[in-house]
Design a protein around this nucleic acid. Sequence first.
DNA 1: GCAATAGTGTCTCTAAGACAGTATCAC
DNA 2: GTGATACTGTCTTAGAGACACTATTGC
Lengths: 236, 236
Amino acid sequence: MAHVSRARQKVAVTADLVILTIREGRLCVLLVERAGEPFAGSLALPGGFLRGAESLEDAAARELAEETGIAAAKLYLEQVGVYSEPGRDPRSPRTITCAFLAVAPDLPLPVPGSDARAADWYPVTEARATRLAFDHDRILGEAIEAARDKLQFTSLATAFCGEEFTIGELREVYEVVWDVELDRPNFHRKVTDADGFVVPTGGRRPATTGRPAAVYRAGPAELLIPPMMRPSATKL
Amino acid sequence: MAHVSRARQKVAVTADLVILTIREGRLCVLLVERAGEPFAGSLALPGGFLRGAESLEDAAARELAEETGIAAAKLYLEQVGVYSEPGRDPRSPRTITCAFLAVAPDLPLPVPGSDARAADWYPVTEARATRLAFDHDRILGEAIEAARDKLQFTSLATAFCGEEFTIGELREVYEVVWDVELDRPNFHRKVTDADGFVVPTGGRRPATTGRPAAVYRAGPAELLIPPMMRPSATKL
DNA sequence: GCAATAGTGTCTCTAAGACAGTATCAC
DNA sequence: GTGATACTGTCTTAGAGACACTATTGC
């Protein structure tokens, strides 16, 4: 093997964020319009380079705060993969990125990022039909698939809701992220029976129409037992 | 923010491998004894620095071949996480590692690594009771937990077996990795019923004692439907 | 015959899905 | 009242687990 290829390279490392939320009944992702080259004018996932003495988790949380103004401590934030194909970033053949999945409740429009990029929510159907910068198409696709899987086995769905929510709002999360329709009575029983998934606050929330719904908070459980099985999974 | 902390750092990147197998009824992991500082003499996960134009997956496959002599194409190999805490490697405060989980059938003792480190299999019970180099304790623990989860929902268990195996051997994989005892009749029915998990070859394998077992090969399914539920999961 | 493993049959229990029916609101 | 949503009850079916039972080998 050639000597040069055995060298311990130093590489640039970024943390990129797939921030998902539900707005107007659609699954949306936060994208920024790139100001500079490469891919100027293209949409891209928010993210940035790893700085001084911080971990990738710190960097992801910092970027999240900069792009959305949300304190990352309040949010679900998790690694979903590392992307290291040589040449994936034309600036330098050796830039690798660690992708994070973040899930937020419906938020006010993001504040303009501190680096003056236009950030906005895009329905994932649109985002996936668009050519994103770098390999962000692939990252977005894999992060969404990870989120879909996590809904089955973890209480991730509550991260899409605010502090308090109704069973109907929680059901909408599953329906929107999985793009399916769920049986309302069965869903209600399932989530209220699952141990530690949701806990009633005692309050009720008057709806625009119909009987007011009981209000719940996220419970202590992180793993769902039994899991919420995704209907399409049985068909594959 | 101070100027220095905003700089785009270049960092060293390694790929570390958690290579699991089953030997003599115990879950084992391949560890190497470190020859040089830091942590000289300590046990560590095999791994190495990212080189020229290769991805982390390439680097992991290359290290796997060097340490075990197995072509990585034949093996299950998957990212399980990135570890980037500043200071996790005393050589340089900025060395991050991407951990890979690999699963191998019972193999001949590994060939001495090309970098002349002593590599050997260790039962994970021993490995977890030992202080490994760097943050490899944590990486090993998280990789094993990932493997345990994957047994439930994917056909990963077949990767622990050879090309051909019996249902009893497959059951031993679950029993050893999960450290539980499973009901033989129910296990047999479950795996033979699950769609595309195992396919009979038609052969039979005479055992040391008892009725000869039918021989199976891994089926095309990657996802198990229905999943194999881990008994302890319901207790948590 | 005995001991061991492989595999089948059957029962019970739990959970999922279908869906009828009741409760409570706005109008 | 209608119409909407929230919830409850009940039936059927599928899968999990317990375990009795049969099958096939070496000794």
